[in-house]
């Protein structure tokens, strides 16, 4: 059941992105979509609307980049709770540090090891 939910909810979240790209202006690129998902996910999370989705769908809600925004928002809120205003600056980065650094390290390694095909 958990797998089905991850598949369906994750698929639906991606489907929205596809509709945005196909139905809006041509100037909406993948970069705009990714920025939109991170920002949108963070805002939904701050309003308390994203956590229920994560509880329901697991990776179906955390793997899309809106989940990245959710982690950032929740990290910032938790850090403010424990450390006050300074936490607002640290929390978002702390909670996503593993993902960001992994992206840089694996990205760098892949860029050094592989050549573009085609």
């Amino acid at each position: 059941m958990q797998f089905l939910l991850a598949f369906v909810i994750g698929g639906l979240i991606c489907l929205i992105g596809q509709l945005v790209m196909d139905l809006t202006r041509a100037s909406i690129t993948p970069a705009h979509v990714l920025v939109g998902y991170v920002t949108g996910g963070a805002i939904l999370s701050a309003l308390g609307l994203y956590e229920p989705l994560v509880k329901l769908a697991g990776a179906g809600a955390t793997i899309p980049l809106s989940g990245f925004g959710h982690s950032m928002a929740q990290g910032a809120i938790r850090a403010v709770q424990s450390r006050g205003l300074l936490g607002a600056f640290a929390g978002g980065v702390e909670s996503t540090a593993v993902g960001i650094v992994a992206a840089i390290i694996f990205g760098y390694a892949a860029a050094v090891l592989f050549n573009p095909k085609e």
Partner: peptide, 19 residues
């Protein structure tokens, strides 16, 4: 093809859909 894609559009290995 590849130099033009790089300069005007996206990197070759970027997973984008062409209209």
């Amino acid at each position: 093809h590849n130099t033009a894609e790089r300069q005007f559009r996206f990197p070759i290995e970027q997973g984008v859909q062409r209209p």
